[in-house]
């Protein structure tokens, strides 16, 4: 092995590191600015994607969603609030209990962040309570973003890694994505 070769290796490693660092785009988060827009809690999102007369009704895209989804800070906050507001009591760490699982690909009322937000705010008829005016709206979005991470549906670099609580399921960075399907047909309320 010649020494120029080793030098070349070192150079290549340094170049690679520089390239990697350059690739890391710092997540945009304003620490001292105004809180993210809250806006009205009622979103008008439909839990269904079936429109009479045909054609997509698709959940209306909410501009607030982009602030929260795929944002590590907000997802991390959502994880805390998920526990604080007792989401955990009914849905466990995503595997479900009184309420349905949130880590699988079955979404009774829709799995987009807008639809999850709407389910939390409005409640759902088979036992999901409405949290309207109980949770500040930005926190609802953060919880919804965290719920999206349970099924591996957020960017890997934004998903929370293993927490320091009792290990109950894979770290969200390890979960294989299960793309949200539209409302799954079930013959029974879950």
């Amino acid at each position: 092995m010649s020494s120029p070769c080793r030098r070349l290796e070192r150079l290549a490693a340094a170049a690679l590191a520089a390239a990697l660092l350059a690739g890391c785009q710092r997540e945009t988060r304003d620490f001292h600015g105004p809180p993210p827009p809250s806006g009205p809690q009622a979103s008008g999102v439909s839990p269904s994607d079936l429109a009479a007369g045909g054609g997509p009704i698709g959940p209306p895209h909410d501009p607030r969603a982009a602030i929260y989804e795929d944002n590590a800070f907000h997802i991390g906050e959502g994880k805390r609030y998920y526990d604080w507001y007792n989401c955990y009591g009914c849905h466990a760490a995503g595997g479900g209990d009184i309420g349905p699982p949130l880590m699988d690909d079955q979404w009774i009322y829709g799995g987009s962040i807008e639809q999850i937000h709407a389910s939390i705010v409005e409640g759902r008829p088979n036992g999901m309570p409405s949290f309207r005016n109980k949770i500040p709206d930005d926190q609802v979005w953060e919880i919804a973003a965290y719920i999206r991470s349970m099924g591996g549906n957020v960017a890997k670099d934004a998903a929370p890694s293993r927490g320091d609580e009792l290990q109950s399921s894979l770290a969200k960075t390890q979960v294989k994505p299960t793309p949200a399907k539209p409302a799954a047909p079930t013959d029974q309320p879950r």
Binding site: A92, A93, D104
Partner: peptide, 20 residues
């Protein structure tokens, strides 16, 4: 039996308050 008839996800050990 909730893991079965509530169609819960056993990848979460704490599902159904620990039965997962």
């Amino acid at each position: 039996g909730a893991m079965v008839s509530s169609q819960l996800d056993p990848r979460d050990a704490t599902a159904a308050k620990g039965f997962g």
